[in-house]
Amino acid sequence: MQGVLSFPFDNVRYAHAGSIVYPPGGRYGPRIQQDIQLVLLYTGEMNVTIDGRLLHVQPGHAVLLKPGHEETFIFSKTEETWHRWISVKVSPLPEAAIHTLYELPEFLPLSGEMNLLTDLMLNMLRNVPRDDATIRSLGLAALHLFPTETKRILLRREKHPALYAVLTWIHEHFAEEITLRDLANRAGLSSEHLVRLFKQHEQTTPMHYLWNYRVNRAVELLTNTGLTVSEIAHRCGFKTSNHFARLIKQLKGRTASEFRQSSSNLDTKEGVPPRV
């Protein structure tokens, strides 16, 4: 199992975060990566060429990028690609930390904790510089979170491979029409057995998990893009805008309009990743 990223806090020179929506056919680079960076992909798709090697990333995943490599980003040709990022400048980078970085997977499913850290950094960066101690601490926490998430996923896979397979499939196909039978077939289990597994390990049912996941993704789109409510409902697997409106109010206690009105990120988008 992968180790823990470890380097002195004083080695963290700065941390930064941003959010951007690329139009269909967008691209970025080539550039030489300067920082350790997490790129969180929400919509569209992203093909990253790293030193000539292609890495295909689907929505719902976070990518770990390492300094010193030439990177080119090519985004979806048919739809907008929205992603956010956290970059952390560590200098000098201890040899043990470099070894750990290259042991970690290149991308992982997005987690609620990753999103919360990104939200917090984006909010704070409106008022403090990127070399502020609190911002640097949050950037360091994001780097520590990646191996923690790796361990959690590996443990889930080792103990409950069927559950892991279903969760991964939901994260990648949540916009499609999905039934309990579909999920059970993916797991190779009966519907009843899959429901028992979810109740034991996720404290919910497979379909409730699916609808919660759809609502969470929809909230992210509401607060970070200018897509219409109808388009968001369609992209996140809701049958109608009214269905989406009822469910978001039921699960979140707020309407879609209230989420959109509370967002102040749309006019402060920054490029991915930054040139430093």
Rank of each mutant, 00 (worst) to 15 (best):
M124N: 12
T78Y: 09
I36K: 11
Y209V: 01
N185D: 07
F75T: 02
S190E: 00
G271T: 14
P67M: 06
S230C: 01
T72L: 14
Y102M: 06
T78L: 09
E106H: 15
D35F: 03
F259V: 05
A17V: 02
S191M: 13
Q58S: 12
N242V: 05
Q200G: 00
A218F: 11
T205E: 13
S263G: 11
R152M: 07
I170F: 03
K239C: 02
S230T: 08
E172T: 12
A184K: 07
R136K: 15
S91M: 12
S263E: 00
V88L: 08
L122D: 10
L108R: 15
F244V: 00
K66D: 03
L117A: 03
A17R: 06
Q37N: 05
K89W: 01
S19I: 07
G68L: 08
V195G: 00
L227Y: 07
F9T: 07
L251S: 13
T78Q: 12
H99K: 10
W85F: 14
T268G: 00
E71C: 13
L227K: 13
H193N: 13
G139N: 04
L180Q: 15
K77D: 09
R214N: 01
K252I: 10
Q58V: 15
V215M: 08
H69W: 14
F7I: 06
S264G: 11
Y42C: 01
V219P: 06
L154G: 05
H171T: 08
E231F: 00
T240R: 05
A233Y: 07
N185I: 04
L194Y: 12
T49M: 12
E220T: 06
D132P: 00
L221K: 01
E71T: 12
A184Q: 04
Q33W: 13
A141G: 08
L108E: 08
H69G: 03
Q33S: 06
A62M: 15
E149D: 06
L40I: 02
A142M: 10
S191Y: 00
R186M: 02
P94N: 08
W211Y: 12
L222F: 13
W211G: 00
T204Y: 04
K199D: 10
Y209P: 02
T168P: 00
R27P: 01
Q200I: 02
I50N: 05
R157S: 04
R186T: 03
T134D: 06
I74G: 02
E106T: 11
V229Q: 03
P274K: 05
T134M: 11
V21S: 08
V276N: 10
L227A: 03
F238K: 07
L140Q: 14
G253M: 11
P67I: 10
N185V: 02
F238Q: 08
P274L: 08
T268N: 11
T228H: 01
L108F: 09
T168E: 05
V57I: 15
Q2C: 05
L163H: 01
D131H: 15
E113T: 11
R136F: 11
H61E: 09
F259M: 10
P94I: 07
Y102T: 08
A142E: 12
L104N: 09
P94T: 06
L145H: 14
L138C: 04
L55D: 05
N212F: 04
S190H: 00
E258I: 04
D267L: 13
F75G: 03
E70V: 11
Q58L: 09
L117N: 09
